[in-house]
């Protein structure tokens, strides 16, 4: 699990200069539609077997990026390649086959389950879709999977609303993993759970990763969880990655002022840590109307005229650390 090992392992996903625009409301009745730059030129690699944490505040484009990687939405520009194959240009048949290789685990487990189907039939669904194995062997596989997520088999005949939140999320995970994906995007997958249950699910995700050799892209707003689960962390701000580094390097030695502010803002369960707090002022800018230069300059304590006019380049500082700041 050390970083050097991961660097050697193969690149499962290569993201290059991905841009994704959304059309917003019109500026006036006859005006142009406003364009939101949800993702605005993002590049990174995802190594097989690692967990990359993707952190940012609401509206920074982290969920959009997750969907771009899974090819659930098409990028406006840029390329996403999975094991060397550009998946933004593939045909429907290839796309469908790819679905069993990469999966998404949602934030709200109850919403991600069809209220009218039993747990069992929903976990089985991916096998039916991709015609995995014999019809009658599939139920065995479902039993195996439900055991893997530590749920009792009698729940298979229940409906989603009869389960607790933690159990529902285990079902969602079981459904995501039953087709044997290599890459799993967890979009705020544990954020809606109660603290004590959240820890169970996080541990489960870690165990499953070890057992099945999964690669995770772990999207969340919660730096505490990211620190715990990720080997590397990417921090997003207004559609761009502003800092990407090994977890420990990023949290112990943050270089981007936004990362520093974010870490400082996370409440720590220790009242003695109160004094060390530095809060930043202001709010994230509107993606329909991004500021010039560095998007963070209006809130940044270090910003000067250069930051206002020039977009900082995302630079590799050392082997483990890349940052987009003029003064890092």
């Amino acid at each position: 699990m050390t970083n050097t090992m991961e660097k050697k392992s193969e690149i499962i996903m290569k993201v290059r200069d991905v841009v994704c625009h959304f059309a917003g409301p019109r500026t006036s009745f006859f005006g142009e539609r406003m364009i939101a730059h949800a993702v605005n030129g993002v590049s990174f690699d995802l190594y097989a077997g690692e967990t990359l944490g993707l952190v940012g505040e609401s509206g920074c484009g982290k969920s959009t990026l997750g969907q771009l990687i899974l090819n659930l939405i098409e990028p406006t520009a840029g390329s996403v390649s999975y094991l060397g194959q550009d998946i933004t240009t593939i045909d429907t048949k290839e796309w469908r086959r790819l679905r069993s290789e990469m999966q998404l685990v949602f934030q709200n487990p109850l919403g991600a389950l069809n209220p009218r189907l039993t747990i069992g039939s929903q976990i089985r669904e991916p096998l039916d879709i991709h015609h995995v194995g014999d019809e009658d062997k599939r139920d065995d596989k479902v039993l195996e999977m439900i055991a893997a997520v530590s749920l009792p088999p009698h729940l298979l005949d229940r409906y989603p609303h009869q389960l607790s939140g933690g159990q529902q999320q285990r079902v969602v995970i079981a459904r995501a993993l039953i087709s044997g994906p290599k890459l799993v995007v967890c979009d705020e997958s544990v954020s809606a759970l109660d603290v004590s249950v959240q820890a169970q699910v996080v541990n489960l995700l870690v165990d499953l990763q070890k057992k099945l050799g999964l690669t995770y892209l772990f999207i969340t707003h919660d730096l505490s969880i990211v620190r715990h689960i990720s080997s590397r962390i990417a921090v997003m701000y207004l559609g761009r990655i502003v800092e990407l580094a090994d977890s420990e390097a990023l949290l112990e030695n943050p270089m981007h002022p936004y990362t520093k502010a974010l870490i400082s803002a996370v409440p720590v369960p220790d009242p003695r840590a109160r004094a060390s707090r530095t809060t930043i002022t202001g709010e994230p800018p509107n993606p329909f109307n991004p500021p010039s230069g560095c998007a963070f300059h209006a809130r940044c304590p270090q910003a000067d005229s250069k930051c206002q006019s020039l977009i900082p380049v995302f630079l590799q500082i050392d082997e483990k650390h890349a940052v987009a700041c003029h003064y890092a």
């Binding site: 790819l98 949602f106 919403g111 991600a112 879709i129």
Partner: peptide, 26 residues
Amino acid sequence: AQDYVRAVRSLGLSNYKIYRRHVLPN
């Protein structure tokens, strides 16, 4: 727009089956 429809879509289910199995019953 529900997550469960987005979920089965990302599982690779065809549109016809999404409507027959997930949307229509609901």
